[in-house]
Design a protein around this nucleic acid. Sequence first.
RNA 1: GCACGGGUGGCAGAGUAGUUAUGCAGUGGACUGCAAAUCCAUGUACCUGGGUGCAAAUCCCGGCCUGUGCUCCA
Length: 477
Amino acid sequence: MALRVYDTRSRSKREFISIVSGKVSLYACGITPYSPSHLGHARQAIAFDVITRWLRHSGYDVNYVTNFTDIDDKIINVANAEGVDFSIVAERNIADYYEVMDAMNVLRADDYPRVTGTIPEIIEMIEQLVEKGHAYVEDDGVYFEIDTAPEKYGQLTGQTLDMVRAGAGGRVDGTGSGKRDHRDFALWKLAKSGEPSWESPWGQGRPGWHIECSAMSLKHLGETFDIHGGGSDLLFPHHEAEIFQSECCLGIEPVVKYWIHNGMINVDGEKMSKSLGNFWTIRDTFEHVSPLELRYSLLNAPYRQPVEFNMAMLEESQKHYQRMIAIYGKALVATGSGDWNGFSTLEAAAENFIAGMNDDFNTRTAMVEVQSIVRELQSLFADNNDDNFIAAGVGWLTEFAGEILGLLPDEETTRSMVAEDNTARTELEMIVEPLLVERSLARDSKNWARADEIRNELSALGVKVKDGPDGPVWELK
RNA sequence: GCACGGGUGGCAGAGUAGUUAUGCAGUGGACUGCAAAUCCAUGUACCUGGGUGCAAAUCCCGGCCUGUGCUCCA
């Protein structure tokens, strides 16, 4: 079945056909590292991680590039407040980004270009825009002139020039900006004293916000590429500005074949943002759930939908995740991992999973199939039969929940996790077993108070007792 | 105000024309001294007003509600 993706520019799902057969070039707008990464960053990174994994699983050779905007006003402000160089702030937060993303099983992109490593290419692009008459130089910087390509306005948001023109129009007053029109945007900003800056034909300064992505995508992916992604809050003005810059500079339309935008994380119905004080960093969230539990919760909705984030949804995901990893680990150790082909239940689940992913990367549909296999395995495992099917189910989970959705540690890691649990179990056995014997005697004589007391003692040791038909079994919490 | 999304059961959240979503919670049952886990069964739904169709949660038009964006910066 063919892959269909929702393209923001055409506002419809379109069949995905890459520019070069068998290859996909993908650029996703990354972060501005001025503070530790928050859940919005996690959602974006995980969304494009899964998109990349799916494209690769579908047989494409993917070149995935995502950037760090490592110089901007917010970084400068933080650096000034701390009395350090801006690069210290950027490096610290980039390190944080890698660490939390690695923990959540986000595979590394093929390249992580930085603005500060792309200055010559940015300057060259601006020079071309000036030469072609799309940009003008003022005494505080270089600006892109919207009126030189009015037909490109509103390509992603549907807004027209007149709509925005109605707001102000003409030269902007009182902003200290040299813009000739309030819809123009900065390509190069000349440095004020004390600001970090780079040499350019127009003087010491730094790039405007939008130009870096045009320059980096051109440098790493070429004049046209398949997919450009990012958060939906970047649609305007950032991505529309990129269309102006790239297409006017290169004289190509379109430069980007498919635009893909992920939805926001909401708290109490509103976008998570620092100004509203409803902000969760990724590390804050790790205080409550494990990195892969968080990943699970963020894949539980399709990437374009807003995610309503709260403790209840987090705890629900945690419960589902723990059930999945528990049966996966137990079954893996018990039966090993096998080929799922030839088992009709597993083939049907695979078919639905694939259909879901091919329908604009619908991870929600995919997760429903994962859940159904988890239930299937629990049921069979409880009956303790059909090892071949259980092994095949484990293989299915390894491929779909593990390799594609990135929700499971690899089989080797899972085995060693189970082994560690067993080791801890063995160490506790000498304490637990005698207590369980005593409790069984208490239960036999219907001394429920003593039986419950012992169960509470064991609970305090981190041991959970379950009374089954064949006597008590216990596990580590 | 304008642009672009979304409005589904107690909650989360799929589903673009006719067929059970799924999960959590609830209820009944198995197992159980109780609990937990697991299993089986089960009720509750498609914002509103029109329209098209044999048939609409699903397509079209209006309304209402809600999210994001609307350029100092991000």
